[in-house]
Nucleic acid binder design. Structure first.
Lengths: 127, 127
DNA sequence: CGGCATCCCTTTGGATACTG
DNA sequence: CAGTATCCAAAGGGATGCCG
């Protein structure tokens, strides 16, 4: 399996990278993680995450819906009520995702220690 | 385990998100993936990935080095030779990472199909 | 060869205001 | 409540040039 773009094709992206890039944005993983335990409505998601703007929450949820990872259900009441939940495909992502999260939880101390210990190289090694 | 920022703390990020955010950038995963099979020098990495600029390769490798995921070894020859390889910590990331990649490989067809099938909600009824 | 510095365009995303 | 539209600032990242 190769993740780099086919040599000659400048217009087409590697499809795997295409999917990975989406997961790599600032909010996607966080939203999926919050939906792990079930359905949440828009305002509940916003409150849970805390530091996401209304704009980015709406936008990211749209993308997740487009990609088939999240279901959106609208109740035509006043005021409106919109509920979000993971699709089957979205649920299937939880396994790999939680592995990554677990790794980050297990190793962030070590990463922070490495950063603190890091000294930028002198740029040239004296002979 | 919680990924959202502590309610009162606006300055401090969740440390897990801090690590996850790094992995989420455009090139980090790709570089780690390329180093899975062993040491590569700068120009070899560049060639393998294909569409990464010299600037971003150098910059991302620096960050990986700072975070303790990649080793950098300089040979003081002329011209210089610099080799990169995964640290033990970097290797420990391969498990979770390959799970994510495998998921993307297994499901990108379904994601593309969902995108193609998606019709944006009416939102407004035309008068 | 392996970078770093600079310039500059593109993308991202927050704040705010408005609407069904 | 759940968005959308607009504006604008900050970050991302390519191209180029220079240098050990």
């Amino acid at each position: 399996m190769s993740l780099h773009r086919p040599k000659g094709e400048m217009a087409e992206k590697c499809p795997i990278r295409d999917v990975l890039d989406r997961l790599g944005d600032r909010w996607t993983v966080l939203i999926i993680y919050e939906l792990e335990n079930g359905t949440l409505r828009f305002s509940e998601l916003r409150k849970q995450i805390g530091d996401i703007s209304q704009r980015m929450l709406a936008q990211t949820l749209r993308t997740l819906e487009q990609d088939g990872l999240v279901n959106r259900k609208v109740y035509p009441t006043v005021p409106p009520r919109v509920e979000y939940s993971l699709t089957e495909l979205g649920v299937s992502l939880l396994g790999p995702l939680n592995q990554m999260i677990a790794w980050a939880a297990d190793n962030h101390e070590q990463v922070r220690a490495a950063r603190a210990a890091y000294v930028p190289p002198p740029q040239q090694v004296a002979l």
